[in-house]
Write a protein that binds this DNA or RNA. Structure first.
Length: 512
RNA sequence: GCUCCGGUGGUGUAGUCCGGUUAAGCAUUUCGCCCUCUCAAGGCGACGAUCCCGGGUUCAAAUCCCGGCCGGAGCACCA
């Protein structure tokens, strides 16, 4: 457990302060009740899946405010359901945060405090603010919807048999739960005596089989936040109705109340974040791994060629709005493009290659710039009388046309031959001078060519339906230089787009 | 169904609390020009919002009040 911080404000729902005059230089608005050095925020994921872009938004906001106020940032795994948690997910979150350059000052698990949570649970029952309920789930559901109290709730607080039985483990799963004594007739259904503890038989990745009684999120979150010294707690807006519960629990326990602030979930059109839509694709082997570039996971974003700085800028550009909207993916791409452009070397890739024989050219060695206006070095290519261009360029050519092979020379098309589906082009050298009036196309020299493919992720979902064409593969030839690049290098295939190098013969399309 | 939360150009946001010096700033998208041996980046510019609708208060409302419409969320022994 962490030391307690002094009261960081106890208003029920504070929101944010106005955007002050200086705000134009600060992406996100200032916090209410915030003092430099006294702000503590936390990112509380449940390790029940892989971190995705939505998690990134939360983590970035949490960390952003901690740094803005020279405070502290906690990564807390909310691992209160042994049925969901897996060790690999804890690891995945740790790695993802590292990748995002978010360094927690403290890393902990809610499960670390399970005994302490028991103590608070007991205290609540003993004080008459919670009770053991042995009704079955159906009955609980019915009474809750009708707003009626059950007999368990009416039992006198002095009768402590059930509470002892509960914590001594004498109930089986589904036989009893501990419920908060809220208000069964409350219009906010979250207050109709929600569950605080339930019995789950399952192996917990951190605690093994030692515990069977698990606190719910509703109970653990406010206590953990309060005890961890969290001054400003952020959560997505679907929790809004639970704020009353959150503060009611702290009130009854006499614990300090953090400020609570909501923001909207981040999701893109065509790129759903929900487990409901992603997990089936994995389980049915439609998508092989969690870092498949079509996925919204951070592992996928990384593999796709997005860099942390772009994700951060993008997230901050979203602001702290409550409006439920789907931001344009193009916006993320724009941030990323601007950031990787200066360090992406330019290379040639021809999709669906078509050979061109150049009649009157002499073999030569060409030196190519790796970047048009930044010095990223050069590369040399030996060129003979045979080169390849992409089919989409080839089919536009007509005999007599003149085009420039970028960074090399101009050619005039002499003849276009078609044998079945195979195209062959005959051309002749027509000058070395750069001419603004003719098209410029990329090329790959014969003998310098390497089989290469580019994976192009498209929208995963079209509306509610999985897009069967969500992954295109462009096959073609790339310059041999590509084989010398380290995996993870960002390149721009000229006139194609930015890509992240996967290996010696493949890349993933990042964006145009 | 009940309750809560939202609703600013195609899209995402700023401004809304403390109504007026901005009849609306920024980003993205699209288009044009400049630059350029790329369909990139950079520079410049354009298109594009009667600030969901209808009333009201006021000299003055995107900003306050009332009513409505639309969208989302919650109503789990998940988080």
């Amino acid at each position: 457990m962490l030391e307690q911080l002094g009261s960081a404000g106890s208003s029920q729902h504070t929101g944010l302060t106005e955007k002050s005059h200086v705000a134009s230089s600060i992406p996100l608005p200032k916090l209410e009740n915030a003092t430099r050095g006294k702000v503590i925020t936390r990112f509380p994921p449940e390790p029940s899946g892989y971190p995705h872009i939505g998690h990134a938004k939360a983590a970035i906001i949490d960390e952003y405010y901690a740094r803005m106020y020279d405070g502290r940032f906690i990564l807390r795994f909310d691992d209160t359901n042994p049925l969901n948690e897996k060790l690999e997910y804890y690891e995945a979150f740790t790695l993802a945060l590292e990748w995002l350059n978010i360094r927690p000052d403290i890393i902990k698990n809610t499960s670390d405090d399970i005994e302490l949570l028991y103590d608070y649970g007991r205290k609540l029952v003993l004080n008459g603010d919670a009770y053991v309920c042995t009704c079955n789930q159906q009955k609980i559901h019915d009474l809750r919807s009708k707003g009626i109290e059950c007999d368990c709730r009416k039992r006198p607080t002095s009768d402590t048999r059930n509470i002892d039985n509960f914590f001594d483990g004498r109930f089986n799963q589904n036989e009893a739960i501990i419920r908060f004594k809220g208000s069964m007739a409350d219009q906010n259904t979250a207050m109709r005596d929600p569950t605080l503890f339930r019995i789950i038989n399952g192996h917990h990745p951190k605690l093994g089989d030692k515990y069977r009684i698990w606190p719910t999120y509703d109970f653990a979150a406010p206590i953990e936040d309060s005890l961890d010294g969290v001054s400003h707690a952020f959560r997505t807006k679907e929790y809004e109705l639970r704020n009353a519960l959150y503060f009611a629990i702290l009130e009854r326990l006499g614990l300090r109340k953090p400020n609570m602030i909501e923001f909207s979930r981040l999701e893109f059109n065509g790129l759903p974040v929900s487990k409901r839509k992603i997990k089936p694709l994995i389980e049915n082997d439609i998508i092989k791994s969690w870092d498949d570039p079509r996925l919204p996971t951070l592992a996928a974003m990384k593999r796709r060629g997005f860099i942390p700085g772009a994700i951060r800028r993008f997230v901050l550009s979203l602001g702290m709005t409550l409006a439920e909207t789907k931001p344009p993916f193009e916006s993320l791409e724009a941030f990323n493009r601007k950031l990787i452009e200066p360090e992406s070397i330019r290379l040639f890739f021809v999709k669906d290659p078509v050979e061109i024989m150049i009649q009157n050219s002499s073999a030569r060695e060409i030196r190519l710039k790796n970047h048009p206006n930044i010095d990223l070095g050069t590369r040399r290519i030996k060129v003979s009388d045979s080169i390849y261009i992409s089919k989409e360029d080839a089919i536009r050519l007509r005999a007599g046309n003149e085009v420039r092979l970028i960074e090399m020379y101009n050619i005039r098309i002499v003849e276009i031959k078609t044998e079945g589906t195979k195209l062959t082009i005959l051309a002749s050298w027509s000058g070395d001078n750069i001419r603004p009036d003719i098209p410029k196309i990329q090329w790959v020299a014969k003998n310098d060519d390497r089989q290469f493919e580019i994976l192009v992720p498209k929208e995963l979902y079209l509306g509610d339906i999985y897009n069967v064409n969500s992954l295109e593969v462009w096959k073609g030839l790339a310059e041999s230089y590509v084989t010398h690049l380290k995996p993870d290098s960002k390149v721009q295939f000229v006139r194609m787009g930015f890509c992240r190098i996967e290996g010696a013969n493949s890349a993933i399309f990042t964006h145009k």
